[in-house]
Measured scan of single mutants.
Amino acid sequence: RPMNAFMVWAKDERKRLAQQNPDLHNAVLSKMLGKAWKELNAAEKRPFVEEAERLRVQHLRDHPNYK
């Protein structure tokens, strides 16, 4: 299953946050990521939305029978 825009963004952002906050549990990091994503405007999200769409199209090509 291809990543959605949030997952594309969160992949690198989670690493950055975890390095800055090594003692935080994953659940806390996830909440921080969700809050930060909601605060991004459409222009800030656009590159990740476009990458998610590219991944979706590639997934359809690679797995035409996937449901």
Rank of each mutant, 00 (worst) to 15 (best):
R14Y: 04
K15D: 05
E51T: 08
W37N: 13
A27Y: 03
L55R: 09
A18Y: 14
E51W: 00
H25E: 15
N41Q: 06
A43Q: 05
A27F: 04
A43Y: 15
A36W: 01
K35Q: 14
K35P: 04
A43H: 10
H63R: 14
N4F: 01
L24D: 11
M7G: 07
A43V: 09
E53Y: 03
R61Q: 12
L29R: 02
N41P: 15
H25Q: 13
F48Q: 01
L33N: 00
E13M: 09
L40T: 02
R46A: 11
E51L: 08
A52H: 01
H25G: 14
H63G: 13
A42W: 10
A18R: 13
A42G: 10
P64G: 12
N41E: 10
K45Y: 01
F48H: 02
E39H: 04
D62T: 14
L33Y: 01
R56K: 08
Y66A: 14
S30W: 14
L60M: 11
D23F: 11
E39G: 08
V57E: 12
M3P: 15
R46T: 05
N41K: 13
V57A: 12
P64L: 10
K45W: 00
R1N: 13
Y66G: 15
E50H: 09
R46Q: 12
K67R: 14
E53R: 08
F48M: 01
D23R: 08
E44W: 04
W9E: 04
A52F: 08
D12S: 10
V49I: 11
N65Q: 09
L24K: 09
M32V: 08
P47L: 03
P64R: 12
P22G: 02
L33S: 05
Q58A: 13
V8A: 06
W9D: 06
V28Q: 15
R16D: 00
R14G: 07
L40M: 14
R46V: 05
A36Q: 13
A36S: 08
L24R: 06
K31W: 11
K11V: 07
F6R: 01
R54S: 05
Q19H: 15
L60V: 13
L60A: 11
K38E: 11
H59S: 13
L29G: 06
A27S: 09
Y66V: 15
V8E: 01
F6D: 02
E13D: 09
M7E: 14
G34A: 15
A52V: 02
W37A: 01
R46N: 04
E44P: 00
H59K: 09
G34D: 14
P47V: 05
L17I: 10
E39R: 08
L17E: 00
L24H: 10
A52P: 01
H63P: 15
A43G: 08
E53Q: 09
K45S: 01
N26C: 07
E44I: 09
N26A: 14
E53K: 11
K35N: 13
P2L: 08
D12W: 06
N26M: 10
P22V: 03
F6W: 02
V57C: 15
N65L: 11
Q19T: 10
M7H: 15
K67T: 14
A5W: 00
P47S: 05
A18D: 03
D62Y: 09
E13A: 13
L33A: 05
P47G: 07
L33R: 00
A43W: 06
V28D: 10
L60Q: 13
V28G: 13
V57Y: 09
A10C: 04
D62E: 14
H59V: 10
N4K: 06
R14H: 04
D62W: 08
D23C: 15
L24I: 15
Y66R: 15
A18F: 14
P2M: 13
H63V: 13
M3S: 04
N26K: 14
K11D: 05
K67E: 14
P22L: 01
H63Q: 14
N65V: 12
R1W: 04
P64S: 11
N26R: 11
A43L: 06
N4R: 00
M32E: 08
K45T: 03
N21V: 01
A18G: 05
A42N: 10
R14L: 04
M32L: 09
P2A: 05
E50K: 10
A43T: 13
K11W: 02
R61C: 10
Q19V: 11
K11H: 08
E13R: 06
Y66L: 14
L17F: 08
A18C: 07
L17K: 01
P64M: 13
Q19P: 00
E53G: 02
A52Q: 01
A10P: 00
V8C: 11
R54K: 10
V8T: 04
K31S: 05
R54V: 05
L40Q: 02
H59A: 13
A10L: 02
L55P: 00
V57R: 12
V8P: 00
K45F: 09
K35A: 07
Y66S: 15
R14C: 00
A27E: 15
K38T: 10
N26E: 15
Q58R: 10
A43N: 14
R61S: 13
L24Q: 06
R56N: 14
V28M: 13
G34E: 14
K11P: 02
D12Q: 11
Q20G: 07
K15E: 07
V57S: 13
E13I: 04
Q19C: 01
S30V: 10
N4L: 03
A27H: 10
A18Q: 12
Q58V: 06
A18V: 13
V57H: 15
M3Q: 07
Q58T: 11
E51F: 06
R54N: 05
H63Y: 15
N26L: 03
M7T: 11
F6G: 02
E44G: 05
A27K: 13
N4H: 03
L40K: 14
M7Q: 15
A36N: 12
H25N: 15
R56C: 01
G34N: 12
R16W: 00
A18L: 15
G34I: 14
E53N: 10
L24C: 10
R16A: 04
Q20S: 10
Q58D: 09
R61V: 13
R46L: 11
V49H: 12
H25Y: 00
R14K: 10
E39T: 12
M7A: 10
S30N: 14
R14F: 03
R14E: 04
Q20K: 14
E53M: 05
L33C: 03
K31Y: 05
K15S: 00
V57K: 11
K35L: 06
L60I: 08
H25T: 15
E51H: 13
D23W: 00
A43K: 09
H25C: 15
R54C: 02
E53W: 03
Q58K: 13
R54D: 00
K31G: 11
E44C: 08
E53P: 00
E53I: 09
K67A: 15
A5H: 01
L17G: 00
K45Q: 08
